[in-house]
Amino acid sequence: MQPQMLIISCGGTRKLLNQEEVAAAATELGFNVTVAEAGAFVALVNAADVLLAVHRAGLTNQIFQPTQAVVLQIVPWGNMDWMATNFYGQPARDMQLRYVEYYVDEEETSLKDKYPREHLVFSDPKALHKQGWQALAETIMKQDVKVNLARFRPFLLQAIDNLQE
């Protein structure tokens, strides 16, 4: 039986720009992939073995996943590790879900097309965090990501391995 993966799609910011390629890669590895807009899709989440999404509120849908399912969070650029782990990673573990994080690099963020590499968003993202929520909302939280499939593939395989434990 194929493991079920639900990819949360969104029309706002922090969307996965190469979502179709990620879905194709996951399908190639043996997942039965469903792509759905964030919203009222509890039944889809409950049927998914893996919930994959870029860091955003849609990941709260993990509360509808069955025990031992996998949450695969794509963490955007910009020193988002604390938020990623504490907002979604630890809660996933507390709900007896398996959790995988993928960290986007500078080449995978849409911020590279908006800011020079000397900008704080690249040179010192922590400094943006220290400036407060408004600074984050205007920069880091407005990015989209395009994952490098060669880098991302091992994380899909890790999701499969987690399901087989």
Rank of each mutant, 00 (worst) to 15 (best):
R153K: 11
V100T: 10
R153D: 00
D49Q: 00
T60L: 12
P91Q: 14
A47R: 05
T13E: 05
Q131S: 03
V50W: 01
A43P: 09
L136Q: 05
Y102F: 11
F122L: 08
A40H: 15
N86T: 06
A135L: 06
L59T: 11
K130Q: 11
N86P: 09
N46W: 01
L17Y: 14
M95W: 13
I140F: 03
M83G: 13
A25M: 08
R151G: 00
D144V: 04
F155W: 01
M83F: 13
T109N: 06
G30M: 07
G39F: 05
Q131H: 05
L44F: 00
G89E: 12
A159P: 03
Y88Q: 07
T27R: 07
I160W: 10
Y102D: 00
D124I: 14
E101F: 02
H129Y: 12
T13N: 08
E118M: 03
T34Q: 13
T109F: 10
Q143I: 01
K126W: 15
E21A: 15
L59G: 11
R14L: 03
G58N: 15
V75G: 06
A43V: 02
G11H: 14
P125D: 08
M1N: 12
K15T: 02
K114A: 04
Q143T: 01
L97V: 15
V75D: 06
I160S: 11
A23L: 03
F152Q: 05
I74L: 00
M95N: 15
T34R: 14
N148W: 11
M1A: 11
K112Q: 12
S9K: 10
F31W: 00
E138N: 15
M95V: 11
Q131W: 06
R56E: 07
W82P: 02
V121R: 08
D144Y: 02
Y99T: 01
T85H: 13
S110P: 10
K112W: 03
Q143V: 04
V71Y: 01
F31Y: 04
P154F: 11
G30W: 02
F152K: 11
R56F: 11
Q158M: 04
N61P: 03
M141N: 10
Q65C: 13
N61E: 11
K146P: 05
D49C: 03
R117A: 09
A47G: 08
F64R: 00
S9I: 09
N18D: 13
A24N: 10
I140H: 05
A40S: 15
P91D: 14
G78Y: 04
Q134P: 01
L72G: 07
L120M: 14
N86K: 13
I140T: 06
A53T: 08
R14S: 05
S110T: 10
K126M: 13
C10K: 15
P154Q: 11
V71T: 03
